[in-house]
Write a protein that binds this DNA or RNA. Structure first.
Lengths: 134, 134
DNA sequence: CTGAATCCGGTTCGATACTG
DNA sequence: CAGTATCGAACCGGATTCAG
């Protein structure tokens, strides 16, 4: 009966609660939004401008997820037109250094990694042998 | 002419080379594969068993990307049946601590974050007020 | 200005079957 | 054992449109 069905605290378990949260945090735009907010609070449109390539939809969606996770605060100033500012919460501030550490590492090693990619692409291991040589 | 079109070294630039690499590394299964390999080398089927919920296709695809990035080594032992072992490269070993730091943080704060989610869901900000109150 | 809602094509994902 | 081929299902993400 009481087996090691799946320990919720085990990241390797399919239903580990850490997975979805990790997904929120490492998502394509979340990393950039958090990096921007780590510099200083931003308004929606400022973020949209800072995070190159993001659509309003994705930005909105990303910010909502981060706000829901308690990493970002959404502050509405009832001016007219209305104004909304986003800033990191204490929790968010605690997280960003680790995220930055990761991003920085990747940035620092990008040349090496790109070299590895080029080498790999130049001589693809186990090439499409099975692929129909039409 | 020569404007600050987009600085490749700027993560906020849409074409920053760091983005795709970052994507490889933080992808849903990459994090788990790297975590497993950080413990010790694994064979394909061992990884498939360790990483709960991953399909062979995704595992294969993930490992190929990591290998291409120079983070993982693929070692083929021509026994019969053939045997393939994956292990971290020096580069990969350098990366995993930062990844672990991130995962550990999330794991440690999962309760708090889940509480935030629950609170958020209980009282959705700007609820469908506009939604037709028929 | 700040988003939410909708439409919708393209990509990704997972399950299964099959090959070397 | 270690993957690849295939196919339908699910999700992602952009453009557009509209409301508060």
């Amino acid at each position: 009966m009481g087996e090691p069905v799946t320990d919720p605290s085990d990241v390797f378990a399919p239903d580990c609660p850490v997975r979805p949260i990790y997904g929120d945090i490492t998502s394509r735009w979340a990393m950039l939004a958090l990096a921007a907010l780590d510099e200083r609070p931003h308004r929606f449109s400022q973020l949209a401008g800072r995070v190159g390539g993001v659509s309003e939809k994705m930005l909105s969606q990303t910010l909502r997820a981060l706000t829901r996770d308690g990493l970002v605060t959404r502050i509405v100033t009832p001016t007219v037109p209305i104004q909304v500012t986003y800033e990191l919460t204490a929790l968010g501030t605690e997280l960003t250094p680790r995220l930055r550490s990761l991003v920085t590492w990747v940035a620092d090693h990008t040349p090496v990694i790109q070299a590895a990619q080029t080498a790999y692409d130049a001589d693809p291991p186990v090439p499409p042998a099975t692929a129909n040589r039409r």
